[in-house]
Design a protein around this nucleic acid. Structure first.
Lengths: 290, 290
DNA sequence: TAACATCGATCGATGGAACCGATTTAGAGA
DNA sequence: TCTCTAAATCGGTTCCATCGATCGATGTTA
């Protein structure tokens, strides 16, 4: 039993005339006769009753035709689905993003979603550690995160952009006019930092201790908008990647030092299949200045 | 696209290894490679990613496989229908049964086999979870099992009978005369329970913990006749569905509580073709008091 | 790191199947 | 009885599913 035979059968059932059906199928009448006969032999039952020169469907043929049609339809639906997939009219991608990338990522996301409205997108914000763990479990197609010291061989890394670490302070603050600030000066200010689960800040704590500085950390808050509220008072300051800063009432002052630039990477599993939609997302992100 | 190719594809998807799949299909590896490639060319998309000597399913392959499988299934169902139409007196049915139903099921089985001696019957005992998984893969015509909390829309459920949970104890035991027993009393007895893979006992563990009882579970044994041997000593007791109890040396004492009745269901795939022989089996089971 | 085992891809050969045109067979209508 | 038409059948051709052998790549073991 092959789909070809089922298609022949269905056409013959529709027209109830082998000669016409053969013409419609662009095959010869003899071929159709033979294929129907072969199908009947395999099924061990007559699908058509030959009454004189007319053919009529048998009960078996009537019942079987429903399944034959459904079988053909299912195969065709699969074909249609793939055509859709090729045109990016279907599919789903899941992305893990660190919160520092929220603002630039949102721009890319909006562009992508406009361009490919039929692709479902799932976004999960989290810490680098969490996201990478879930990536290993195939929960994400890719992760946007800072570069970690150790590259792992089973992961694929694509550089997206570099971002400077900045001291975030209120616009009305006396510091606001500076074009840069040293780590030593930062250590003397009252700080409200992001929660230490975030790699941004882990990295910073190390930088302080390397220089034997003792920063004045007053608070740790796991929410950047709230941090901004604190900073806006002008009493406290915070440290973030410059990609995180877009509030009109605060400014970011680049921190001096060659290690104060961090690299944003697209990280994915090396051996995983790369969906077409994901490739498009990469192109969009690396192409535009996000 | 032919059914042959779809079947090859599905087997390759299952085993994720062309060599093994070819063996299972009784064709050569080269044939399989070529046919898969041909299918991919016709669909104009890769179904497998070849990474070194490994193959993994692509997104397209994953999505297409569902339709491929359904196409194959529909054709097979049509075939089944015709075989059925040809002769009710031959054929084969395959049934999955939970062990608790062993005794009442055996009665129905004997009756059916006497009545339709030409129908081959294959019976597989297993846990509810195993059986339902195999049902999804079309390995069974139907499954006899306890009712699970969540009905799934693609399955068909027919109530067969209700069965009380009983404490099984030796006939010589001092408890043997009781007409019922509370869960609290049960928790104080030394228990030898069926292996926790069985849904019977999972259900019971939940009941104990809901009432904050701490049962004294001394053993878990994956074989009911062996459990009876343990129970016959009079030192230990077990918990089973009353349908499991037919040993002359033990008795079952109904456990009190409105949740202590469990419903036995006939569970089958909603969209699958229902063989005539299977319908007869349903009639026999629901008709007689098994 | 060198030898080996294993997997998928590819090649050339072959048998069988799909297909065709021509012919035969057999109802239906005149 | 003759004619028309539609399905079945026959013989020949083309195509393709299949195979075994081999290649190249990759992972494993000594």
């Amino acid at each position: 039993m092959e789909l070809r035979q089922l298609k022949y059968f269905i056409k013959a059932k529709e027209l109830l005339n082998f000669t016409d059906a053969a013409k419609a199928l662009n095959i010869s009448q003899s071929t159709l006769s033979q294929q129907i006969k072969q199908l009947e032999e395999e099924l061990d039952i007559l699908l058509f009753n030959r009454i004189g020169k007319r053919i009529i469907l048998t009960e078996a043929g009537e019942m079987f035709s429903e399944y034959a049609l459904q079988s053909i339809n299912k195969a065709n639906q699969g074909l249609l689905l793939l055509k859709d997939l090729n045109n990016l009219n279907t599919g789903k991608i899941t992305i893990g993003v660190i919160y520092s990338m929220r603002i630039p990522f949102a721009k890319a996301l909006i562009q992508f979603a406009r361009r490919y409205p039929n692709i479902k997108i799932q976004v999960v914000f989290g810490t680098t550690k969490d996201l990478l763990e879930k990536l290993e479990l195939h929960h994400f197609d890719f992760v946007l995160s800072f570069y970690e010291r150790t590259k792992q061989p089973h992961l694929k890394y694509q550089t997206l952009l570099s971002s400077n670490m900045v001291l975030v302070t209120a616009k009305k603050s006396s510091l606001a006019g500076k074009t840069s600030i040293s780590l030593k000066q930062v250590a003397e200010l009252p700080l409200a930092l992001p929660f230490s689960g975030y790699s941004t800040i882990q990295f910073f704590v190390e930088s302080f201790s390397q220089k034997k500085l003792n920063p004045n950390i007053c608070m740790e808050i796991n929410d950047i908008p709230t941090l901004f509220e604190i900073v806006k008072t002008g009493h406290w300051h915070t440290i973030l990647s410059e990609t995180s800063v877009n509030d009109p009432h605060v400014v970011g002052i680049p921190i001096e030092g060659k290690n104060m630039r961090r690299t944003i990477m697209i990280i994915s599993l090396r051996e995983a299949y790369e969906k077409k939609a994901v490739k498009k997302f990469y192109e969009l992100m690396t192409g535009i200045q996000i």
